[in-house]
């Protein structure tokens, strides 16, 4: 909440900064192959924060489905492919698209959209089993997406 107020204040004072206001989940534009070419926030991502988000259950929880050798999280899953070397295989724009909503890249994939607010079938309030509030936030906010993308860009093997 505090952050939104702060952002609004900044935007009001410096018209130029307003161009970098966070893109809302509904307004994200994907290319035909599922890339998202512009940053969601206009701020560079922080790879170390991204690493933490990727290993935290209540956040990205990427390790529940992917092996990422660079992370020291225990019990990494294998529902999805290993992410080692992801930056050798994918561009930043493609990785951003995959994290925001991988269904634009991989049709019908089981990978959840991390920056998506619907439409969902029976959306819940986190892991409580109760109905979601009307303004269900995406799993990750825009900056967290950028942080995860910045972390993925460090995953190079070549």
């Amino acid at each position: 909440m505090k952050r939104h107020v702060a952002l609004a204040a900044v935007a009001a004072t410096f018209a130029a900064t307003a161009a970098f206001a966070e893109t809302a989940p509904m307004d994200v534009k994907f290319t035909d192959i599922g890339e998202v070419t512009t940053s969601l926030t206009g701020q560079p991502g922080d790879p170390s924060k991204g690493a933490e988000i990727a290993s935290t259950k209540s956040l990205g929880n990427c390790v529940s489905c992917h092996v990422v050798s660079a992370l020291d999280a225990s019990f990494q899953g294998n529902v999805g492919p290993e992410l080692n070397g992801a930056a050798d295989r994918w561009s930043e724009a493609q990785l951003r698209g995959i994290v925001i909503d991988a269904k634009h890249t991989f049709e019908g994939t089981v990978m959840p959209g991390m920056y998506k607010t619907g439409p969902f079938i029976r959306p819940g309030d986190g892991y409580t089993g109760k109905a979601a509030p009307a303004d269900l936030p995406p799993i990750l906010n825009g900056q967290q997406v950028e942080d995860v993308v910045a972390f993925l860009m460090t995953l190079k093997e070549e």
């Binding site: 529940s64 089981v110 998506k116 079938i121």
Partner: peptide
């Protein structure tokens, strides 16, 4: 086969497409 919730997963996502795999420490 209905993909429920914010994670958009159906029973089939875990128990038909991914049995034998691990989701974190859980062997599906």
């Amino acid at each position: 086969y209905t993909r429920y919730g914010q994670l958009e997963l159906s029973c089939a996502s875990c128990h038909e497409e991914n049995y034998g795999n691990y989701i974190r420490a859980d062997h599906l």
